[in-house]
Nucleic acid binder design. Structure first.
Lengths: 352, 352
DNA sequence: ACACGGTGCTAAAACGAACTAGCAAGCGTC
DNA sequence: GACGCTTGCTAGTTCGTTTTAGCACCGTGT
């Protein structure tokens, strides 16, 4: 509990000027209001000598803006993903001089309300509302009084604010293309049924991935050899589904709806003494860290969580600063799709 | 940009009382200063009707405390771990009415300084300084003016503040015991050399784990059959080290210094057609999610990151509130070891 | 008739900075 | 020597709340 913070008043008294003079000088308006260079220098020197730093709380009260963002996510346990989004957002915010309050609701709407209120009470300049499920949901009320960006949340209709989403449709196309371009035609799906209506999960991602896959297959006159709808995309499920497929004969290729399912597939394939990619090719989605660790490396379409978080924070800050400049202009809006890059590793074998 | 926030002044004027009266009533001191029950009720009713919420920035300015914590970590990329610590801290904070600013430095000390300053400028009530490396480091200056808790940071000497660490020594003992109790005596190490001086990593965790392991082996008249020091604890390294061991004959048991190394070991063992745990037993540390996904499930000593984060935030808030009550009392301090529970799965086979 | 003690509320001073309006001194002009 | 213009700085208000000191009224006792 050492020395207290030094205030502007102390700097002013030490430099023998009025508080207002010190304020003007330190906020860069000195020349504009004709403070002599000599006095300006003196003020700056004493401020530096005393280690003066403006009290952000006071500035926040006076100016009504705090250079602070809120990041609220529903972060289901599963998510290392969430962590990456947060990091991306924090980095982008930091680069533009903003700090961020982070909150997790665990999907609890009451908690979400409380968190949002607590953050608005603290006068955050903007809010990133993130979800790990993409799936459409009701938006909390009151978001219209603070600039907001939706991150990984798909809503029906125009939410009237920017939305950042991964380009799952193109990702589906890319995954299928990786297989088809390698000459593979016997393609099985794990994570979703073979037809659009078979997805059986609330995840919007699943629908779009499937749609992209089917589009490409269709363009080549193909259909999935089988499809395995699954609720929990975890290794044991992948293992089980892969065994079903293998029981019916060795497939040319399997597309897994995420890397954890692919891990289960690897286990099932390798337990039978079959080899990836020589006997069966595998492609997947997410680019979780296991994708690089599996042997052979898993080719997968990456979910760029960090970039999404970064993008959301940047859009939010743009929107805040735009509002400040044009208070009556229209609010920012629009869907921002972040590309999902294919990470090519060794799990696909060219077939002639 | 809907309606503005309603202020205390508006509530007061609407309820036809003075601002100070309204303040007193709403902060629960109404009865204490003898505001009539009738007036109190009127104030509360109008506050509720107008949806009044106190402006936390103003309160922060006036009271000098903001019900806000800072969480600053160096979070190397690797870390899902970091995410769990943050979540634990955020949850604990939220339960006690605090919000948290999260910052990441990536190990950059300049950035750390900036972040800390920015947070102190915002009048945070306390700071959790976290690291992903445990390893001793210089502490930034100026931490003595704000209550601080060190999370997963081991320092030499008394830092004069609480420190939260996982009990790695006991974890080492537990890992070794799991093997020894199963009657296994041919025990190989991956992640560290066989002797205390062979650790070859900056991680304090490695030293303590090794020490715990050696203690137990020694108590049973055993020594490690081999030890493989490794800098990067990743699957490919585990794979390589396991192959070295396997080339020299089939080992009874391997203790891996983390789950990723163990994943590499699984791959090497299974590639030779050997079986876990029938042919070789494996035990590990961390309880990362792959530990549960590997087949067979990996027995591992969990690093309870979430609990550590929670603990740190709780200690910090205790310390803040204690300081507030006894401004001249001694600062909180001490090392708080969080137990690392053993997650028993199927990777150890009893041997007779 | 007058001090005395309660009762019930309020005025005003913080907190730390930003910012508007404007004052005083110096100088030139006619 | 009165007027205006510039230059260089400052007093004072504001943001929204908390908190202390104290005012005004009323009834009671002497």
């Amino acid at each position: 509990m050492a020395r207290k913070r030094v205030t502007l008043a102390q700097v002013a008294s030490e430099a023998e000027v009025a508080v207002s003079t010190a304020s003007l000088v330190l906020s860069g308006r000195g020349t504009e209001v004709r403070i002599s260079e000599k006095v300006q220098e003196r003020v700056r020197a004493t401020a530096a000598r005393l280690g003066y730093r403006p009290n952000a709380v006071s500035v926040g009260l006076r100016k009504g803006s705090t250079s602070t963002l809120a990041f609220v996510s529903d972060s289901v346990a599963s998510s290392r993903l969430a962590g990456e989004m947060i990091k991306g957002a924090i980095e982008a915010a930091r680069d533009r001089g903003y700090m961020v309050f982070v909150g997790e609701t665990g999907g609890n709407l009451t908690l979400e309300r409380q968190l949002l209120d607590a953050m608005v009470d603290r006068q955050v300049d903007g809010i990133v509302l993130a979800s790990m499920l993409t799936h459409g949901r009701e938006l909390p009320t009151g978001l219209d009084s603070t600039p907001t960006v939706l991150l990984n949340i798909a809503v029906d209709g125009d939410p009237g604010m920017p939305v950042v989403l991964p380009d799952e449709l193109q990702a589906g196309r890319d995954a299928a293309s990786a297989l088809v371009d390698a000459g593979l035609t016997d393609i099985h799906l794990i994570g979703s049924g073979p037809r659009p209506e078979d997805v059986r999960t609330i995840s919007a991602a699943a629908h779009l991935r499937l749609q992209g896959i089917l589009e490409v297959l269709d363009a080549h006159g193909l259909t999935p050899s089988s499809g395995h709808a699954i609720n929990q995309w975890l290794p044991p499920e992948g293992f089980r589904a892969a065994n079903e497929i293998l029981d019916a004969g060795t497939p040319q290729a399997i597309v897994c709806f995420n890397d954890r399912l692919a891990m289960g597939v690897y286990q099932a394939v390798q337990a039978r003494g079959l080899r990836i990619p020589e006997d069966v090719s595998v492609v997947s989605f997410d680019d979780a860290s296991i994708a690089a660790w599996l042997r052979p490396g898993l080719t997968t379409v990456a979910l760029p969580h960090r970039i999404m978080g970064k993008r959301a924070a940047e859009l939010l800050i743009d929107s805040i600063e735009h509002d400040r400049a044009h208070p009556d202009g229209p609010a920012a809006t629009g869907v921002h799709l972040v590309p999902m890059p294919v990470r090519v590793r060794e799990s696909i074998r060219a077939h002639d």
